[in-house]
Write a protein that binds this DNA or RNA. Structure first.
Lengths: 115, 115
DNA sequence: CTCGAATCTGGAGCGCGCTCCAGGTCAAGA
DNA sequence: TCTTGACCTGGAGCGCGCTCCAGATTCGAG
């Protein structure tokens, strides 16, 4: 199976090498397989997962939130517990969207006013 | 004209007294009028403005962003410059909404999967 | 085999956005 | 007048999310 060096994984994901190691330390990704010499070998699955993490980070979730997300998806949990957790997270995101909507409305008012 | 003490302004806005003073130091609000003895006296206008700041903070804008916002609205700028700035800010917020949408979609997929 | 680039680890440093603290001032009630 | 509590200032401290650094190790090209 073909794997990626840290530099390649960084290029593919747009996440810095330092941050990749940080995420791994924090348990958000991996643990990533190592070569005999101890170098990291990122798989396609790793890259995909990093993409998910990035997606949630971009959406404003904190490291702790993501740790929770990882925990729920990785460990064995009854489906209903997972669904409950996921719905809760979704609701939180909706709150954020609402906050953004309010701010955009204020901007729109100002834009109208100055136009 | 009736004014509010720091404690009252904090109650009304939901922003801590420390944070109100911090915002003032950073130029996001005020400068707030003072009593003879040097205590702050918040006006209704101040409270309203604090509401705006809070709205944008909740939407995820940084202190520096808000300083820019304040500068554009307070100082004399040609309307078209203000509008350009406001539109730019609005576009940034749309980006954030899009990021949230992507994250919510991922959650929805997982929810569907586990349901 | 040698050299240089890439990677490793542990830990320090940094910018942000507050939050807290010490030490002093002001103001309203008993 | 005295006390008590809210408020003042300047500055330190903190949690987050990286980011950078030193010093050692590994690996591929020549």
């Amino acid at each position: 199976m073909t794997t990626l060096t840290p530099a390649a994984a960084s290029d593919r994901t747009g996440v810095s090498i330092d941050t990749l190691r940080y995420y791994e330390r924090e348990g958000l990704i991996g643990p990533v397989r190592r070569s005999v010499g101890g170098r990291r070998q990122y798989t396609e699955d790793d890259v995909f997962w990093i993409g998910l993490v990035t997606c949630f980070r971009d959406a404003g979730l904190g490291i702790a939130d993501l740790r929770g997300f990882v925990a729920i998806l990785r460990a064995e949990h009854p489906p209903q517990e997972r669904v409950a957790f996921l719905r809760e997270r979704r609701a939180a995101l909706e709150q954020r969207v609402a906050a953004l909507g309010r701010a955009m409305q204020v901007l729109d008012e100002k834009i109208t006013y100055y136009s």
